[in-house]
């Protein structure tokens, strides 16, 4: 079975990254969701973020 059909056969478990309202909607539907308190990486510096990516 491919991963898509595994998903269709499983309980949906969501990681929400971004707008908190989407996580709240899912919680109101009793969906398991972890809401990430996301913020721009490397303090919002694109240059620093690119450098950090190279280090990984």
């Amino acid at each position: 079975m491919n991963r898509l059909n595994e998903l269709f056969d499983s309980k949906l478990k969501v990681i929400n990254i971004g707008l908190h309202g989407f996580a709240d909607d899912l919680k109101s539907l009793d969906v398991d969701v972890i809401d990430v308190d996301w913020r721009p990486p490397a303090g919002g510096s694109k240059r620093m973020a690119d450098l950090l990516k190279k280090l990984k």
Partner: peptide
């Protein structure tokens, strides 16, 4: 949540 199966990204 190691068993998570979908990321909703915004």
């Amino acid at each position: 949540m190691p068993e998570a199966n979908l990321a909703l990204i915004s």
